[in-house]
Design a protein around this nucleic acid. Structure first.
Length: 368
DNA sequence: AACTGTCGCAACCGCAGCCCG
DNA sequence: CCGGGCTGCGGTTGCGACAGT
């Protein structure tokens, strides 16, 4: 059954709106509100179809429209929501006060999408684009230098790459890599942004925490793996606490400015579980607690200071997102089900703390 | 200065879902 | 239940602005 067009094509104007037309629409809606878009243009004295009027009003003339460049926080929200919702622009826009679905869609297509593509990330799946990865070089062990025993023992790329049906690289890992890379570059360019500033001003990793971090892959090696990330650095989540205190000196000095900050609360000697306790997470509060359960009942807790932007208070985190449900158990992410049971999400795949995109995301563009 | 290519954004198009008679 | 009307949504297009040659 064919649908009649929303407006009679004859005699109705199309194309850009003139200021006079805008004023007529504003005046009419100001007086009468917008009820029936089909009859509105006739009543308002406009030679437009109702659809055109509705679009003009909702996307441009509405008084609560926020114009101008998207902030980083908005951009971050768009990326996060898009990874969950896909191209549900209206749903995404609903989380961004003053922004329209059309504006979000345009911004995605003209800025974010291109940026992700540049970075080798598929903007649809938010996973790495496999066509850009040199798989053979990733899997070839000789690509690593032998001067670090940690590389052979801990840089287990098969785990990094995930198992058969998993995406090749944890998207969170890529986000982190992006974060680390851009932060690193920003610091290079701005000597004022030294470690001390980060720790003091951004509640970032304390020196104590840095001393208990697992080793990093050397930047040049990571470049080999993911050329599009430049000299980004990569961390691997430890399988056990014995790995944890080893070689993490570089982390805090280069990789701060996350939106999720992990602050040491209490330090223990060993652990076999990393718990992001769902019960302790409350979107209305600012912090959730992650706990390393040690073998000797001493807990090593890290407090995640969740930015409001990452989890807008008006909208709780999605139930299955990594915000609140992950337990890392001996290198595997465990999902806390609602019934209290846990389920292994990412079998034998290197997992890591939840990090967010840094506030300096924009800088990524300059260095790719 | 003129031409060409690229980018960004407003607006359009067509489909789908909801509502109502 | 069915069909028509209305609205909302996502994809696409057109065009002006701008940059590069």
């Amino acid at each position: 059954m064919g649908r009649t067009p929303c407006c009679d094509k004859n005699g109705l104007k199309k194309g850009p709106w003139t200021p006079e037309e805008d004023q007529k629409l504003i005046d009419y809606i100001g007086k009468h509100g917008y009820g029936n878009w089909r009859t509105l243009p006739k009543n308002a004295g406009l030679q437009r179809c109702g659809k055109s009027c509705r679009l003009r009003w909702t996307n441009y003339l509405r008084p609560d429209i926020k114009r101008g460049r998207f902030s980083f926080e908005e951009e971050e929200t768009i990326i996060q929501l898009h990874s969950i919702l896909g191209n549900k622009w209206s749903a995404i826009a609903a989380r961004l006060p003053g922004r329209t679905d059309n504006e979000v869609k345009n911004y995605w297509n003209t800025h974010i999408r291109k940026r992700l593509l540049k970075m080798g990330i598929d903007p649809i799946t938010h996973n790495p684009r496999l066509d850009l990865l040199d798989i053979s070089s990733i899997l070839h062990p000789s690509m690593f230098q032998n001067n670090s025993p940690l590389l052979s023992s801990q840089m287990n790329l098969s785990r990094l790459l995930g198992m058969q049906q998993q995406s090749l690289i944890n998207p969170e890992l890529l986000k982190l890599a992006t974060s680390l890379f851009s932060t690193n570059q920003l610091q290079k360019n701005n000597p004022c942004l030294n470690q001390q500033n980060y720790v003091q001003e951004n509640q970032c990793f304390s020196n104590q925490f840095q001393d208990h971090m697992p080793p990093l892959v050397q930047s040049s090696q990571f470049q080999d793996i993911l050329p599009f990330y430049g000299d980004a650095q990569l961390m691997q989540f430890p399988n056990n606490v014995e790995d944890f205190p080893a070689n993490y000196a570089n982390f805090g000095s280069q990789n701060c400015q996350m939106n999720d900050y992990y602050v040491p609360v209490q330090q223990g000697s060993s652990c076999d579980q990393f718990i992001m306790d769902d019960n302790k997470y409350n979107p209305s509060e600012e912090a959730t607690t992650a706990t390393f359960q040690s073998n000797n009942s001493t807990n090593l807790s890290y407090q995640s200071v969740l930015s409001n932007l990452s989890t807008p208070s008006s909208s709780p985190a999605p139930p299955n997102s990594t915000y609140n449900n992950n337990v890392v158990n001996s290198g595997s992410i465990m999902n806390n089900n609602e019934d209290g049971s846990t389920e292994k999400m990412n079998n034998n795949c290197s997992s890591m703390l939840k990090f967010e995109i840094p506030d300096i995301w924009d800088n990524v563009d300059e260095f790719i």
